[in-house]
Write a protein that binds this DNA or RNA. Structure first.
Length: 581
RNA sequence: GGCUCCUUAGCUCAACUGGAUAGAGCAGCCGACUUCUAAUCGGCAGGUUGAGGGUUCGAGUCCUUCAGGGGCCGCCA
């Protein structure tokens, strides 16, 4: 159990004894009692709001409760002193031994330090990327990919059973367009001259697909009507695109557990079944939608459509699931797909969309709520767009001008670690500026190198220590006493490390992996600060030439720092550096 | 027009889902390299959290009105 929870448990225990002693009324709701690090470290190591939260229902002034609680807590070994402050905060200063003991704990648990049981092994489905299988992934997909993968890693670390899933949009007309485009490249490979007209994909990446199609079928598809080849080419082309996309993802170290084909929903009654389920809840009806107000829609005319009553679950208007010609809208397979996820018994669903799909959030949430009778938790995270810059100048992307930046371009230029880290240094719903020069700049401007440098410095100390003939192995370090690790700057680091398990849980609960990146930056900062203090205060250097036992303690301490940096970077999907070059 | 996300220091962003005197980095100014790699550190300065109202012990955070910006808005997925 991490230190904050431990102290919280103490607080709750004492509150309960106060109830037993008749100093507090029974039946109080203590769920909102929290123990947190205060913003201002001068206030102490931890603060609890217990008195303020309980005073109203207990009908006792907050200060009175706080003072009582303070007296009781100060009897505990781990509490150095406790003080009532402000409107009724109770500030606790924790005994230095508890911070030193954290280091032992970290070394003992290693990469499991911070791992949490929060998720109770609940099954979570994280769906992300899900780009149309019509071409390589571009920069917008990259952010969704990195975010989804880091969130998945984070949730795993927090005790969830995570499935990474990709929804292949292979059922719509865009794959016909793809097939026709590949057919043109095929004809080209057969020696014909071709023209890419409006409504086809002219990208070079289809050239090898056309060639391999020719290798497969020879000249058989030449001069044949579309009916003859379209089915085969469609499958051939989408398979090729998915291979391409999987390769793109692999460049970032991302591997999906499941690829779910939209097409597989058709023909087997899956869509009908999902709609039937909604129908049984009286949520499907035939009707005519009003024209959207304030926005002119050319050639608008009222059409009779089959509609899903999404307004019954918080949407603004009901949504069509069947077009006037009787064909499904894209929303219908989406409903069926989420129904399928529910039927696969996931406890929670998470979808990651680009911000341009923000308009679909309400209807998807309505659908999942209706289909699962509100039983399946469903969160949709939107990733805002990435703005590219080169030397401070915005980079205009245009497919036609060929200045279209793909995921591969990006990773080729800056590498996977930098791409991943930078994409995670911003909240998902904030736009992200990505400057090709800046992200490669090796300075503290650049959080990637800043954190990497901290880990490299630790490795460097290890190398120096080894050269100096200082022996230290993992087992021994676990049992270090740390009684000489007492300086403010050192304890500050121990405190920071103690926050790690809490931070993991908060990040997992809020589905916000960026918090990990910010935390690592702060930890690195505390470490660099301590390092530089060694310039002035010799005692703070990690290698103490004439004091092997002290050096050993310090090795163990920075080893604990390295453990947390490594775990944090692992969640982000970034390799810790052993040296800078 | 509707929905949605956003607006915090000159700039780029945090703020532990409601806690105390709102924090970092950059840019600016001052200072630290004979070192465990200065790819770093210390200090100074910088704020009516877009504006108003509300909820309560307490609001950057929740509700509401307004202003500004991004995204989306029936037979494209």
């Amino acid at each position: 159990m991490d230190l904050f929870n431990k102290v919280k448990q103490h607080v709750l225990d004492e509150l309960n004894s106060m109830v037993t002693a008749g100093e507090l009324p029974s039946g109080l709701d203590m769920t909102s009692v929290s123990v947190e690090p205060p913003r201002d470290p001068l206030h102490g190591d931890m603060a609890t709001n217990a008195a303020m939260v309980l005073s109203k229902s207990a009908k006792i002034s907050p200060r009175k409760i706080a003072e009582n609680l303070a007296n009781r807590l100060s009897n505990l070994d781990i509490v150095e002193n406790s003080q009532v402050a402000g409107p009724g905060f109770l500030n606790l200063r924790i005994n230095i031994k508890a911070w030193q003991a954290i280091l032992n704990r970290i070394l003992e648990l290693g990469s499991d330090y911070g791992r949490s049981g929060l998720g109770e092994n609940l099954r979570v489905n994280v769906e992300f990327v899900s780009a149309n299988p019509t071409g390589p992934l571009h920069i917008g997909h990259t952010r969704g990919a990195v975010f989804g993968d880091a969130l998945s890693k984070l949730l795993s670390f927090a005790g969830y059973n995570v499935t990474r899933e990709y929804y292949i949009n292979d059922g719509g007309s865009q794959v016909d367009t793809l097939a026709r485009s590949v057919y043109l490249r095929y004809l080209e490979a057969c020696g014909q001259e071709v023209v890419f007209e409006e409504g086809t994909y002219p990208g070079d990446y289809l050239v090898p697909v056309g060639q391999s199609l020719k290798e497969k079928v020879g000249y058989d598809y030449m001069d044949k009507p579309e009916d003859y080849w379209i089915n085969d080419v469609r499958k051939f082309a989408t398979d090729a695109m998915m291979t391409l996309i999987k390769g793109d993802l692999a460049v970032l170290g991302i591997h999906m557990d499941t690829f779910f084909s939209e097409k597989s929903l058709y023909g087997g009654g899956k869509i009908e079944k999902a709609i039937e389920s909604l129908k049984s809840k009286n949520l499907i009806y035939d009707g005519i939608l009003d024209s959207p107000k304030g926005k002119k829609v050319e050639d608008w005319e009222p059409r009779n459509q089959t509609l899903f009553k999404s307004t019954s679950h918080g949407d603004d208007v009901d949504r069509p699931i069947k077009k006037s010609d009787g064909a499904w809208t894209y929303f219908a397979p989406d409903i069926a797909y989420h129904f399928d996820k529910i039927e696969r018994n996931f406890d929670q669903l998470i979808d990651i969309f680009g911000a341009d799909h923000g308009g679909y959030v309400k209807r998807m949430k309505a659908a999942v709520a209706a289909l699962s009778d509100d039983k399946v938790k469903f969160d949709i995270k939107l990733t805002q767009l990435v703005r590219l810059f080169e030397r401070g100048e915005p980079l205009k992307m245009s497919k036609r001008a060929g200045t279209f930046i793909t995921l591969r371009d990006l990773v080729d230029q800056v590498g996977s670690d930098v791409t991943r880290f930078v994409m995670l240094t911003r909240k998902n719903d904030a736009p992200l500026d990505f400057d090709f020069e800046k992200v490669l700049e090796q300075s503290k401007d650049n959080p990637v190198y800043y954190v990497q440098y901290a880990s490299a410095r630790i490795h460097s100390v290890f190398r120096k220590a080894k050269e100096a003939g200082i022996q230290f192995d993992q087992k021994q370090m676990q049992n270090a006493t740390f009684c000489n690790i007492t300086h403010e700057a050192e304890i500050k680091i121990a405190k920071k490390l103690a926050e790690w398990p809490r931070l993991v849980e908060i990040s997992a609960k809020t589905h916000e992996p960026h918090r990990i990146a910010f935390y690592l930056y702060e930890l690195a900062s505390d470490f660099h600060s301590l390092w530089n203090k060694g310039n002035e205060i010799e005692k703070l250097r990690f290698i103490q030439e004439n004091d092997q036992p002290l050096t050993f303690e310090k090795m163990a301490m920075i080893s604990a720092v390295l453990v947390v940096i490594s775990s944090g970077l692992a969640i982000l999907g970034v390799e810790p550096a052993t040296e800078m070059n």
